[in-house]
């Protein structure tokens, strides 16, 4: 997957997670729906964060080929 897609997934899922949490506190959405959304989206959020962290921005070192 492209870095942009992963970034998009991370941001979107993060926003949904925070909104569902706030919504449950304010009583705007029911606790059950908020919990369900959290359980489903949390893995996507955290995996995309992990992949973003691991994706290097610059090329790797040239491996040592011997003198």
């Amino acid at each position: 997957m492209k870095r942009l897609h992963i970034q998009l997934i991370a941001i979107l899922s993060g926003i949904i997670l925070i909104l569902s949490s706030i919504g449950a506190y304010l009583g705007a959405i029911s606790y059950a729906i908020s919990a369900l959304a959290t359980i489903i989206i949390f893995p996507a959020f955290i995996i995309s964060i992990g992949l973003l962290l691991s994706a290097g921005l610059k090329d790797g070192d040239i491996p040592f080929m011997g003198y």
Binding site: I49, G50, S54
Partner: peptide, 30 residues
Amino acid sequence: FLFKETWIPKTASQGLYVGVVALALAIWSA
């Protein structure tokens, strides 16, 4: 580990290899 270079091994069953990680996170958050 999150900062390490990551890919899916060529011999792995790709869907399952990633799926179990997502499921492990999902069941314990549930």
